[in-house]
Amino acid sequence: MKRYSKSFRALWIGEIVSELGSAAGGIINGLLLFELTGSKEWLGVFWLVYFIPSLVLQGVAAPFLNHVSKGKAIQNIQLIRSLAYLFPVIGFVLYKNEGIIFGLIILQCILGLLQPIYASLSFSLLPEICEEKELTEANGLLDGTIRLMSFLAPGLTSFLLLVSPIPFIYVFSCCMFLVSYLSLAGISQVSIERVPVWSKKFWWKEMKEGYHSFFNYPHLLRLTLLSITVQFAVGATTVLSVPFIRESLNGQSWEYAIFAGSFPIGYFIGILLLSKIPKTDQTMYLGLIGGGLSFVCLYFVESIPIAWLCELFGGIMFPLFNARSAAIFQKIAPKDRMAQLSAVRLLFLRVAMPLGIAFASASFLDFSIGQIYIIVGLIIVLPGLFYFLVQLLRNRTNSI
């Protein structure tokens, strides 16, 4: 960690504490709303409040992201999110269920609107605070940290529920985002001074130029499309995981918990592996193929321990693709449009997940769970295999 810049360490610490606070708050939000309303419909509305406005804002805000100070902007976003976690607490103070529900809706809306903006800006900030040769490992470290926190947060939240009232957890999340805000103050102000001047173009024209620029980089587009296949599969498996373990394999709740935890554990192992192996395009495509095969293998699985191993294997392989593809994007994308192109990329990735959810939900009518796993796995494996072979032939041609 010492070999990274002070700015990166500030960003990394900010990510750790904010992800922990976010994951703890996210777990308790749905639980509290269901306890207050007893309604699955309310839960559906709750997530729509998070998801739909964020997609709309992300789609239209991309032109403006090139013209903000990235470091200062993400710091302010963390402060706003910290304060947003106090809205449910106010409802508790007033002793009114309606106030708590209203506070939860306001919180969810704020988080949904700010998360994609934060993710786009922090992604585009990374090339400014890391050397180019460090980008792959830096992306992997940040991604692995988020996965690890999402694995640790359920246990921590369960412990907090045992020893403290629910409002304390919201105060805890508030404090975590406040710590993140303070940590992000350590990001060097050098990058903040290099803000392109707003050209005062009509917003629609500027937005079209941004999307047009994205499609003018075939390599970036190809990597984004490959990442979309992964996000589509992840969306589908969020629907499949519980019935796969509980019904198809007749597993217990604790066996599902291990299944759900196997992927983030594997992901963390994959991040460690990433620092030991060559960071080439071939390795990247092998990671994509291996991750896709982990889904395909679930079609043949008849034993829960084997299913755990498949998830663990998938977790180990996917960082090899994710970290390298993100680093290539950050190297190739023009610096003056980095934030905007990052927002476009993230928008495509975020749209892919609900499409995967819709596919898996609708497919229950015609396909078995195992068949859906093999379909989404092949969607990843086949293009990954194609580009791996293309890269292999290209390397051999260059060596002749």
Rank of each mutant, 00 (worst) to 15 (best):
R9N: 13
A10I: 06
G14H: 09
V17C: 07
L20H: 01
I28P: 07
T37M: 05
G38C: 03
G38W: 05
F51S: 13
F51I: 13
I52R: 13
L55D: 10
V56R: 03
L65H: 06
G71V: 05
I80L: 10
Y85R: 07
G91H: 03
N97M: 00
G99L: 10
L104S: 02
L111H: 10
L114E: 02
A119W: 01
S120C: 10
F123A: 12
S124N: 07
E128C: 02
T136N: 00
E137M: 11
N139T: 08
D143W: 01
S150I: 02
S150W: 07
S150F: 04
S158A: 15
L160H: 11
V163A: 13
F172P: 02
S173I: 04
S180F: 06
Y181E: 03
S183C: 15
S188I: 06
Q189E: 13
P196N: 01
F202C: 09
W204R: 11
W204Q: 09
H212S: 15
F214N: 00
L223H: 14
T224V: 05
L225F: 14
S227R: 04
S227N: 15
S227G: 15
I228T: 15
V234M: 10
T237Y: 12
L240F: 04
L249C: 08
N250F: 10
S253Q: 14
W254Q: 14
W254D: 15
F259M: 07
F259T: 03
S275Q: 10
K279C: 06
T280Y: 01
D281E: 15
L293E: 05
Y299T: 04
F300I: 04
I304L: 06
P305T: 12
I306H: 13
W308Q: 01
P319H: 08
A323G: 08
I328D: 08
Q330M: 09
M338F: 08
A339H: 03
S342D: 02
S342H: 01
A343R: 04
V351F: 11
L355D: 06
S361N: 04
I379S: 01
V381K: 06
G384D: 06
F386T: 10
F388W: 14
L392A: 14
N398Y: 00
N398V: 00
